[in-house]
Write a protein that binds this DNA or RNA. Structure first.
Lengths: 190, 190
DNA sequence: GAAGATAATGAACACCTGTACAATAAAAGT
DNA sequence: ACTTTTATTGTACAGGTGTTCATTATCTTC
């Protein structure tokens, strides 16, 4: 079954208007009324499609996350993967974040809701889950699989948070280096 | 210099009113107007002290985080700490989270702003930073210290997120066990 | 306890929010 | 092309937001 043309038109107008407004102001300062005025959509119609402005933004971010998922699906799965033989190019996540930096700056902003964070988290987590499941030989020392994955997935986001706080100044190659060292254990003594 | 009594009275009324409202409804559904009505504070006065309802909530959470910080400051520092000789009771963070479960459920809610998350993150991160700095002998394999700490700090929150998603069903003892295994490396083969 | 400083109040303003409903417009199905 | 179905519109309403300003109340300080 096809979607009504009017719906497509309405939603696209709103999404396009949001991008336009984001060029000059922050997501939090954009009101539904303003968005509808620019998109030339009746405000009542807005509520037939979205709950709030974040809801419109979410669409873009879901496309972005999907782009990431597809781009790194294959190389990831082809590796006999386990948590200790990972190479940086398998999870070229930093390239992805840099590519959509403008969006990730919004997502990691203190005022943004946690939903976006969870979307990133769930995506990375799922990647790890699928990859680690392939590596049947590994036994993870009685660590519950759910906790293991959540631990490592969020650790990676920890690097992205640090990168964000440093305003994305660290080069991607360095980040990949560091990540690989952190994953394949971290400590040595002099 | 002392704080004006009127200010103390106003802020306390608002904070108390928030706690009352939180018993019956969620943080997002509480309006400034409603809060002021219950606290018997003029709405204009509200804006002299807080920016929004979250701002009032933040006060409570800062107290909670401070409680955590103080409770685990000493045992942590007394240990010749490094990332591999940690014991669960050093970071008894899960006990803390359980104690203030009602608050952490709000903080990890998808609608809550990232600010609270960052407050948790910064606190755990600072703990790690202070502790790891003591362990002068360790060299962390050319891993940038900032990234190292952010990585491990956020990993721990990864466990809390998983715990939250499982509705805090996993017992604390198990969580401590798993955490220690995850920190002191994770993998073995059959 | 009086004088000066500062905070709280009430009223008003323009704007935003979420919802409802009848009227209209524009698709889809035949 | 015509009918049916469905989406959009305009209007209205009760409430919330954030700000301003003169007035009043309450604290602090001496």
């Amino acid at each position: 079954m096809k979607k009504d043309l009017r719906i497509i038109k309405t939603e696209e107008s709103l999404r396009k208007a949001l991008l336009t407004l984001l060029k000059t102001k922050t997501l939090e300062t954009i009101s539904i009324s303003e968005l509808c005025r620019l998109a030339q959509i009746n405000r009542g119609t807005f509520y037939l499609h979205y709950r709030d402005v974040h809801d419109v933004f979410r669409h873009y971010f879901e496309v972005i996350v999907e782009d990431f998922r597809k781009a790194y699906e294959k190389p990831y799965l082809n590796t006999n993967f386990n948590i200790n033989n990972m190479t940086p190019d398998m999870i070229d996540i930093f390239n992805h974040v840099k590519k959509y930096k403008a969006f990730y700056q919004i997502i990691f902003d203190g005022k943004s809701p946690m939903t976006y964070y969870y979307l990133v988290f769930d995506t990375i987590r799922k990647f790890m889950e699928e990859s680690l499941s392939i590596d049947n030989n590994a036994v993870y020392l009685d660590v519950d699989f759910d906790y293991l994955i959540s631990y490592h997935a969020n650790a990676i986001i920890g690097i992205i948070i640090e990168w964000h706080k440093q305003n994305y100044t660290t080069p991607i190659e360095i980040l990949n280096e560091q990540l690989i060292k952190l994953i394949t254990n971290t400590r040595s003594y002099r």
